[in-house]
């Protein structure tokens, strides 16, 4: 509740397998909590309004925009950021594919792209349709290039590395 005139709350989030707590102003977004309080700066601050996907993280394994989620809403939940997917010593196979296919140039959108790519594979396997899915009744969706393009459309890349990004996701998860 309010103290010193500012509404605060205590949140505890499991981040990349580790439980972490912070006392925060209720206005803090999950993005700001991760970057400013937990110093996990792999997740990027792009538009801060849901338009670019740079801030994509996994919340309970679902890809989510951390800029539009209040940190208090993540209380008690499991958050995975790019730091939890792989590191320089042991890259995630999608990270390796991004390198192999030139899936980035400046790299600003890359953490969001990779979190999104990892999660979309799970969505397709669970039968979540997309706007280009022909057979809505299919139990799982095969990830054609067209499906990957559509499912990655919430992640913009100002450097225009989209072809490499789609190639990388396709190599790892494609049909």
């Amino acid at each position: 509740m309010a103290h010193e005139g500012i509404s605060t709350a205590e949140v505890t989030v499991r981040v990349n397998g580790q439980s972490r707590s912070a006392d925060i102003d209720t206005r803090t977004s999950l993005l700001d909590l991760l970057r400013d309080r937990f110093r996990l700066t792999g997740t990027k601050w792009g538009c801060n309004q849901g338009g670019c996907g740079a801030c994509t993280v996994l919340v309970d394994d679902q890809r989510t925009l951390s800029c539009l989620m209040l940190a208090v809403q993540a209380d008690g939940r499991e958050v995975t950021t790019i730091e939890g997917l792989g590191d320089a010593a042991a890259l995630h196979r999608l990270q390796e594919a991004f390198i192999a296919h030139d899936g980035f140039q400046c790299g600003y959108c890359t953490a969001g792209q990779i979190c999104s790519g990892v999660a979309l594979a799970g969505e397709a396997a669970a039968g979540v349709p997309s706007v280009v899915t022909q057979d809505l009744r299919a139990e799982t969706v095969e990830l054609s290039v067209e499906e990957i393009r559509e499912r990655m459309s919430g992640n913009l890349c100002r450097c225009g590395a989209h072809n490499g990004i789609v190639a990388a996701v396709s190599e790892v998860y494609g049909s």
Binding site: Q62, R63, T64, L65, M69, L120, S130, V131, L136, G154
Partner: peptide, 16 residues
């Protein structure tokens, strides 16, 4: 309904 929902926003936004 399924088609309308997946026509909107992005995968990330629809999850939230």
């Amino acid at each position: 309904l399924a088609r309308a929902i997946v026509s909107g926003a992005s995968g990330q936004i629809r999850n939230a």
